[in-house]
């Protein structure tokens, strides 16, 4: 059987995987910032609940999160279509992991920066937005890029809730062609074709950031 007939299907799967990655990274990192601020809050009523949510997100395997969202939530009347369930689950996991990287980045900004901003008379929100955040996020970037690559690979878990992403497509193709080795080898190479250049990019960015501001 001519495997090339099925390459478009794998291509479609890859596109959906990339879309899921984009959604979970963009929304997940935005939510991660919110979590990072919550965990850094001086208000205990904000800090503790946020910390619990983050630790749950980091502690539960992404696959379990997907099952809870897709199979579990209907029991309490919350029903999601499978792609949406995957997007929500992966976003939550990305948020939990990224929040710790963002928090560490923000914390790495020297205390003197905030003091200088305060002494100049800048508003707290200006000091955060223009002084602390740009420096903190910069030191978190290498980790966040690595996490984005892991998130991309992690989209394969959505296969388990019947989302037609790359892994799911290749499983279906393999059951038609019975050419398991070739199909999964091609699938693996497709993940590699995205992940490896992304890793190179991330290393390049890291090297550039290490040179400092110029």
């Amino acid at each position: 059987m001519d495997l090339s007939l099925y390459l478009p299907r794998l291509g479609d799967g890859l596109v959906l995987s990339l879309q899921l990655t984009a959604i979970s990274v963009v929304l997940g990192y935005a939510l991660g910032l919110v979590f990072a601020l919550g965990v850094s809050s001086t208000n205990k009523l904000v800090r503790f609940p946020t910390l619990v949510v983050v630790e749950i997100g980091r502690g539960i395997p992404a696959l379990v999160v997907l099952y809870i969202v897709y199979y579990g939530f209907p029991a309490i009347g919350i029903l999601f279509e499978n792609v949406l369930a995957a997007a929500i689950g992966l976003t939550f996991t990305a948020a939990a992991y990224s929040s710790e990287m963002i928090r560490a980045g923000l914390q790495s900004v020297p205390k003197g920066q905030l003091e200088a901003a305060a002494a100049l008379g800048l508003h707290g929100r200006t000091a955060f937005g223009r002084v602390i955040f740009p420096q903190g996020i910069r030191s978190a970037i290498p980790g966040l890029m690595g996490l984005a690559i892991q998130s991309f690979q992690g989209t394969s878990l959505a296969y388990s809730i019947s989302v037609n992403e790359l892994m799911s497509q290749s499983y279906q193709v393999s059951t038609i062609t019975f050419d398991y080795l070739a199909v999964y080898a091609i699938t693996g190479l497709m993940y590699v074709a995205i992940a490896v250049p992304a890793t190179w990019l991330s290393m390049g960015v890291e090297k550039r950031l290490a040179r400092g501001y110029a």
């Binding site: 020297p110 003197g112 003091e115 200088a116 002494a119 008379g121 002084v131 910069r138 501001y213």
Partner: peptide, 20 residues
């Protein structure tokens, strides 16, 4: 607080310029 700080300039031992 901001009104007070706007009247008073401060220079630190560690400069604290914004590196970015």
């Amino acid at each position: 607080l901001l009104a007070l700080r706007r009247q008073v300039g401060m220079v630190f031992q560690s400069f604290n310029l914004f590196p970015h």
